[in-house]
Simulated assay, not measured.
Amino acid sequence: MTYYDDIFERAIDNYYLITTDDANDLEIPPVELAKLAKRGRLQNLGRGLYRLTRHVPSEFDPYAIAVARVGGPAYLYGESVLALLRLAPTNPERIFVATPARIRKQLPDGIQVVPRKEPARITRYEGIPCQRVKDAILACRKTMMPERLAEAASRARAEGFLTKTELDELEETLA
């Protein structure tokens, strides 16, 4: 198998994205990613992040790319979790990504990095690392109207993202 075949196998399950860390895990020299980009097989999206040039676009691509650009232990946070799951209308121009790591690299204007020191309960929605829905709703208390958050909680319960107990706790907190 070629390097590209190995990269393809890894990227296909990750929104067609591959990082230099992924290449290292596959024992592929990171310089090979740059070579494949120069040949037109990969697209360089940012420092250490590439996407297969032949990919199937998804509505979740911006969220996956934002988390991958921040890198490491990053995850979707707050309003962006609600937007990803279509639980509440939010500003599509901003994607909130939390990370406990210090970020020094330049990121596009639409990605808002939220430094988080305390350990978060992380799950995956649509294959993207995310803050759990209950915690995301609680994180939005200062930026969203309580009525909108209550509606998001009800939708989350109806779609199976919250348990009855979690919904009851949220309703008490949001009231």
Score class of each variant (00 low, 15 high):
Val67Asn: 01
Ile65Asn: 03
Val56Trp: 10
Arg39Thr: 13
Leu45His: 11
Pro73Gln: 14
Leu36Val: 04
Asn44Pro: 04
Gly46Ser: 03
Arg41Ala: 02
Leu42Ala: 09
Arg39Ile: 08
Leu42Lys: 10
Gly72Phe: 12
Val70Ser: 01
Leu82Thr: 08
Leu42His: 09
Arg51Ser: 02
Tyr63Phe: 15
Ile65Asp: 01
Arg41Leu: 09
Arg47Met: 08
Pro73Ser: 02
Arg39Glu: 09
Ala64Asn: 01
Leu36Cys: 02
Val70Gln: 00
Pro73Trp: 06
Gln43Asp: 11
Ala34Thr: 08
Asn44Gln: 14
Gly71Met: 05
Val56Lys: 15
Leu42Glu: 03
Gly72Ala: 00
Asp61Gly: 00
Leu42Val: 03
Pro57Thr: 15
Thr53Pro: 01
Lys38Gln: 14
Ala64Ile: 06
Ala66Asn: 13
Val67Pro: 07
Ala66Trp: 08
Lys38Ala: 10
Gly40Trp: 14
Val70Met: 02
Ser58Phe: 14
Gly46Trp: 12
Leu76Lys: 03
Glu59Thr: 11
Leu45Lys: 06
Val67Cys: 03
Gln43Thr: 13
Phe60Trp: 15
Ala68Phe: 07
Tyr75Arg: 01
Gly46Asn: 04
Gly71Thr: 09
Leu82Gln: 02
Leu49Glu: 07
Gln43Ile: 14
Glu59Asn: 08
Leu52Pro: 05
Val67Arg: 04
Val81Glu: 02
Leu82Phe: 07
Glu59Cys: 03
Ala34His: 10
Gly72Val: 00
Arg69Trp: 14
Arg69Gly: 00
Arg54Gln: 15
Pro57Tyr: 11
Ala83Glu: 13
Tyr50Met: 01
Val70Asp: 01
Tyr63Trp: 07
Gly78Ile: 07
Gly71Pro: 09
Phe60Arg: 02
Ala74Phe: 03
Leu82Cys: 07
Val67Gln: 02
Thr53Phe: 04
Glu79Lys: 05
Tyr77Arg: 06
Ser80Pro: 04
Arg51Leu: 13
Asp61Lys: 01
Ser80His: 00
